[in-house]
Design a protein around this nucleic acid. Structure first.
Length: 911
RNA sequence: GGGCGGUUAGCUCAGUUGGCUAGAGCGCUGCGUUGACAUCGCAGAGGUCACAGGUUCAAGUCCUGUAUCGCCCACCA
């Protein structure tokens, strides 16, 4: 005790402390129960960590999530909830596979060359490395999660949960398989969901082309395509615009709007498709916009979602002309084997040669790209697995509407509704290797298809052993969608953790994955568990650099925003405090390193205050607990700070319960720094440095009591420094073995003392006024000056605390006169605070003209406000506004008038 | 094409049922090494709360519109 270093050095304590907490079992709910810190039948509080992808290292987005989750966890643990923060990580199918593929590419390897099994081995190796790094980073953040309950989406239990979930949905016909148009990434060679397609605006072209029409004069091209005479003899044409000329070879129709006067009469006729010379019908379809392009559109049902629908309506064939890697297939005739872009150039050139290219316009439009590898997506018809989302979405909508699940900030509920109401079926199969194999088998004998939780050996239909499992894997979000219950032991409904902690309480994540993840968690949980997975969704914003730019690895100063760098430079507490208090939910945050430095300074400030207090304790001195103090031992400043602490605790507790962490954190800081350190601690020095030993008892008690309770309030924000300090405090003023398992402060209503607060506020105003005058007159800071205080009815109070006033304002105690009514000295600067006036006889220094100017200025301001207040009270305000608001206004007016009267009196002496 | 958010001090941001003189950190100015702290203290300067209307006794806060920046969603080829 009392051995605190000169400054707080986070690195010296953090790792040690974390290891100790963990070794003590404080992160485990069982420990708290065993210690009797969780009351019988206490409510549970559970948050499952959004499992980071095992793709790389953590960034500030993870840091803010972990911080807020741990903040909530520590707060609830202190409140006596049966608390669990469950950690884990996500195999992140497509993302991780891509990362490992890039790693392999560095060695000149490619996954197909390696083979599925070997490749998966490599991914597991990668997983082991990144997982270790991620875990280490999370520990550095000080999060109090139960590592023994850590889960991984591909581990045994969760894989089983995935199979059960799939099987259940399959049996309920909420999962189906079929050939539909999906988003296909030709680089990943896999289908991806709508959400994984990122549309990017691009500059491109709109090619106006024309197809000849078959008529009595011409119907079959006589010359070779590319000869320049392919359309020779054609007499009628239909002109259309396209952004994708390479798909022309896959056209099986031309569509026009039936209302279109230009083209309407062509419906039913045949066009002759360039290149192949195939006759294709012209159909009428409402989907065609008359205004766009020429009003006619080529229809390629196999390669465009709209065309797919038009084709379906008119019985047009879907002719696939692309391979899985987006090269032209045999159907492309002369273009077979070309890449889609090469083909585009070639076919445009050929159209020009054949006189079928009318014009080319600049065109700006959105093109879909793969979220993971940025490759241009190809819409493609392929057989995939889907989740029928409509019925699931209904339940999710109800859960939010009914309030079973609440989203913070509330505006995201509308966004959630909109998405859920317009949801489309979710493509869950991926042609990847890294992930959960789809638990469906096919019989090669009888063609039976069935789903099973455990791998079968024979066909249930015909008994054949010639069965094969589906080779696809599931979308990674399918397994993470089960996270809130799969991690707690589902599908075992008797799992103690599931019964104890489900439904969970909080899902904290960035708003960018509301649809990807939170929405899926809600749908799957409501379907499989019959309940929403959590009661509150708290969405944080994106973290950007100090100029509001998105932080990316390619930025030259990206290293500055690495959580580990920040932790090493400023300490974990500084990072956590800053992340928790610098923004509000759902709003992006520009992380300013200066703020982090400020938070580090705050930790040090707290440290210094503690040092001061402990330095004033003798070795082994017993501190008197607050309860043992007699009422009269508590002086004005003691009653004031205790009252302030009471109010702070009330306010912070309310804010924490309402998930207003930012405001809570700011209030705690303001209290500790501005009230406790700057005023109370300075006030306490008066008694510390006095001769009277008895007088020193109360301030020690109050200092330690307030400090100890402040530490408890601050602990969820700055767990390390608060715990280190707490451990150094004398045993008499604390309970238990660690701050992190201490009880959240229960404010003692007896501390509330509004009179003390008002009186000290007056004293502070007086002191500030004196300091102000001293600064203006350049009175040397150390110089003690005489003063005459006219305190009116408060004379006894100020007389009793004369040392306090003289100490804080650097007055000469021997020449401080405190009276009820004073005859103003001739050569003195008056300081007015409410109805109090203190005269500072600055012998020979007082510039009367300057004083008059100062007083007049102050009087003008006062009079302005008085007039405003009077006008307000004379108007409809007095009767329309609530009584307490009016009363407050009246009180204010009286105060202003009192101060103005005093000021006028002072002026009158000189004028 | 829809929808959402931001616009508050030089910079980065708070300001949740509308209610005292709109706040903080950093920066800036002046003073200061008083026996916790220069990662500090004291005093101070600095804002027509983007703009225009409206509702109200009262608007940074609610409504309408405008500007501007950003984000999300969307099958105009």
């Amino acid at each position: 005790m009392g051995e605190l270093a000169k400054t707080y050095n986070p690195a010296e304590h953090e790792a040690k402390l974390y290891a100790w907490w963990e070794a003590q079992g404080y992160f485990k709910p069982e420990t708290l129960v065993a210690k009797g810190l969780v009351a019988e039948g206490a409510a549970s509080f559970c948050v499952t960590m959004p499992p980071p992808n095992v793709t790389g290292i953590l960034h500030l987005g993870h840091a803010i999530a972990a911080t807020l989750e741990d903040l909530a966890t520590r707060y609830h643990r202190m409140r006596g909830y049966d608390t669990l923060f469950l950690p884990g990580s996500d195999h992140a199918g497509i993302a991780t596979q891509n990362v490992v593929e890039r790693e392999l590419a560095k060695e000149g390897l490619e996954r197909h060359g390696l083979g599925r099994e070997k490749f998966i081995e490599r991914v597991w190796e990668w997983k082991a490395q990144t997982h270790a790094r991620i875990t280490d980073q999370h520990r550095r953040l000080g999060i109090s999660c139960d590592w023994e309950r850590e889960r991984f989406t591909l581990d045994e239990g969760l894989s089983h949960a995935v199979r059960v979930a799939f099987h259940t949905l399959y049996e309920r016909e909420l999962i189906y398989r079929g050939p539909y148009m999906v988003n296909w990434c030709p680089r990943c060679e896999s289908a991806i969901s709508d959400l994984e397609v990122i549309s990017q605006e691009q500059d491109s072209h709109l090619w106006y082309i024309r197809y000849p029409l078959a008529n009595a004069d011409w119907g079959v091209p006589q010359q070779e395509w590319g000869s320049g005479r392919w359309a020779e003899g054609a007499t009628e044409f239909i002109e259309m615009a396209t952004t994708r000329p390479e798909t022309i070879v896959g056209d099986t129709g031309v569509a026009v709007n039936p209302e279109d006067e230009r083209w309407g009469q062509l419906i039913g006729r045949q066009a002759v498709l360039p290149v192949s010379g195939r006759a294709i019908p012209i159909v009428g379809d409402e989907a065609v916009e008359i205004e766009f392009g020429t009003g006619a559109v080529k229809v390629t049902p196999a390669h465009d979602p709209t065309d797919y629908e038009i084709g379906a309506r008119h019985g047009l064939d879907a002719l696939n002309v692309l391979t899985e890697t987006a090269r032209m297939n045999a159907e492309a005739g002369p273009y077979a084997g070309l890449g889609r872009n090469e083909c585009r150039r070639a076919i445009v050139a050929d159209f020009e040669r054949e006189g079928l290219l009318v014009k080319v316009e600049e065109h700006h439009h959105a093109v879909g790209h793969c979220e993971r590898c940025d490759t241009v997506i190809e819409p493609r018809i392929s057989t995939q697995w889907f989740v029928r989302t409509k019925p699931l979405a209904e339940k999710a909508l109800d859960a939010v509407r009914s309030g079973e699940m609440r989203i913070i900030p509330a505006r995201f509920e509308k966004i959630f509704f909109h998405w859920m109401e317009n949801i489309r079926d979710w493509c869950i199969s991926r042609q990847l290797w890294w992930g959960h194999r789809i638990p469906v088998w096919y019989c090669e004998e009888c063609g039976q298809e069935w789903s099973a939780v455990e791998a079968p050996t024979t066909c249930p239909q015909c008994g054949s052993a010639r069965i094969k499992q589906d080779s696809d894997v599931l979308d990674t979000w399918f397994s993470s969608g089960l996270w809130p219950f799969s991690t707690l032991g589902w599908p075992d409904l008797k799992s103690p953790d599931l019964q104890r902690f489900f439904p969970t309480n909080l899902r904290e994540t960035g708003y960018d994955i509301l649809f990807f993840w939170v929405a899926r968690e809600a749908m799957l949980s409501l379907e499989l568990m019959g309940r929403a997975p959590f009661s509150t969704v708290y969405l944080h914003g994106l973290i950007r650099d100090e100029h509001g730019k998105k932080i990316s690895k390619s930025m030259p100063d990206a290293w500055k925003y690495d959580p580990l760098y920040i932790i090493e430079e400023y300490g974990t507490d500084a990072l956590r405090y800053t992340l928790a208090t610098s923004s509000s939910p759902g709003n992006d945050m520009s992380l300013d390193l200066r703020r982090i430095a400020g938070a580090r300074n705050f930790a040090n400030k707290l440290w210094q205050a503690t040092r001061f207090i402990l330095l004033n304790l003798a070795e082994g001195e017993r501190v008197t607990p607050l309860a043992e103090l007699a009422a009269e031992q508590l002086l004005l400043e003691d009653r004031w700070i205790l009252s302030r602490l009471y109010q702070l605790t009330e306010s912070v507790t309310q804010l924490m319960a309402a998930y207003q962490y930012g405001e809570a954190g700011r209030q705690i800081r303001e209290f500790i720094w501005d009230e406790f350190c700057d005023w109370y601690l300075e006030a306490a020095k008066v008694r510390f440095y006095a001769i009277d030993e008895v007088a020193k008892v109360a301030p020690k008690t109050v200092l330690l009591t307030v400090l100890e309770q402040s530490l408890r309030l601050l602990h969820p924000f700055m767990p390390y420094v608060t715990e280190v300090i707490w451990q150094a405090l004398p045993a008499e003023i604390k309970e238990g073995e660690a701050l992190m398992i201490a009880a959240w402060p229960q404010p003692d209503a007896a501390w509330l003392d509004v009179v003390a607060e008002e009186q000290l506020a007056l004293l502070m105003e007086l002191v500030r006024g004196i300091r102000n005058v001293r600064a203006e007159y350049h009175v040397p800071p150390g110089k003690r000056i005489a003063a005459l205080l006219a305190a009116g009815a408060l004379q006894p109070l100020f007389a009793a605390r004369r040392e306090l006033l003289s100490s804080l304002a650097r007055l000469d105690a021997a020449q401080l006169e405190i009276v009820a009514v004073a005859e103003p000295p001739a050569q003195a600067a008056p300081v007015v605070a409410g109805e109090l006036v203190i005269y500072l006889p600055l012998a020979g220094m007082v510039d009367i003209a300057a004083e008059c100017r100062r007083l007049r200025k102050s009087l003008r301001a006062l009079e302005g406000r008085i007039t405003g207040s009077q006008r307000k009270l004379a108007g409809p305000f007095a009767e329309r506004a609530p009584a307490h608001i009016v009363a407050r206004e009246r009180a204010l007016l009286a105060e202003l008038q009192g101060e103005a009267a005093q000021t006028r009196e002072q002026l009158a002496r000189w004028e």
